[in-house]
Design a protein around this nucleic acid. Structure first.
Lengths: 147, 147
DNA sequence: CAGGATCCCGCTAGATACTG
DNA sequence: CAGTATCTAGCGGGATCCTG
């Protein structure tokens, strides 16, 4: 008789798989870019701030101040903005620069790595704009079929 | 005097922005692919099942049965597997085929749209494998700097 | 075999208030 | 201006049990 029950074996398999996933680079990247505010901050810094109703992202990458980001991402709370900026800085995707004016000025800017990621995001955006209409149509068809 | 207080105006701006985001195709796509199990199911069906410790995704797209998916994605619960498969079917990314054997056989397979999305995911995977080491290194540096 | 139905818990986003 | 600190509620996801 085995030393582990079937339930224990399953639990073990799950634990192993979870551990594996945490080391999976793709998983880590997906976790990063899927964050609601990460994508928006990247887009803002990378294209001069898109994702304002009506504006499309066609600008050049440029630095922005905390307050400017806060204004462009109209829906973000201070907490989430700060927290997201910190994590992006930690990952080396953006730089945080403090200038000792009074009051203090803080600017954020994409690094080369961040810019590279921003380009990947553009690819995602293109797929989305090319295919999400079809997805939306599929959903409606499916929902009608169901009722 | 305005009919809205400053706080009310901010709340309004947030509501508008949230509404805007919900209609943003990129946001919708990100929500879709960032789901833990979506990425794995797409990878499984699209490459003959990667994301097993040790195995890399090099196979051909092919159909799989519910139980096979369940085995390959060792960490998934029945609930989440079913729920995720349903939502992918709804989006027209996979097809669900019931064969009236006894007991019943159900197979899932990528549609053309799903295959197209799978290719996008490969691009994401490539970026991840090319750059996530650097990100990891940045994190460690940042964390050391902080203590 | 391939799910459906429930209960329940942890985590996190958001609100609010305060500060160098 | 650019944050920090704290509290709380909602919900996504897992566990568990049941079925055509």
């Amino acid at each position: 008789m085995p030393t582990l029950t079937a339930a224990q074996k399953r639990a073990q398999a799950r634990a192993d798989y979870d551990a594996f996933l945490e080391n999976c680079p793709s998983r880590q990247l997906l976790d990063r870019i899927s964050d609601k505010w990460v994508a928006l901050i990247l887009a803002a810094l990378g294209s001069g701030g898109p994702h304002q109703p009506g504006a499309d992202c066609v600008g050049e990458p440029r630095a922005m101040r905390y307050s400017e980001l806060s204004r462009r991402l109209a829906g973000v709370s201070q907490k989430m903005l700060t927290q997201t900026l910190r994590s992006l800085e930690r990952d080396g995707l953006i730089t945080r620069t403090v200038t000792a004016t009074v009051p203090v000025t803080v600017t954020y800017e994409l690094t080369d790595l961040g810019l590279s990621l921003h380009h990947l995001m553009r690819g995602i955006k293109e797929w989305a704009e090319a295919h999400m209409d079809e997805v939306r149509a599929n959903r409606e068809r499916y929902d009608r079929r169901v009722d």
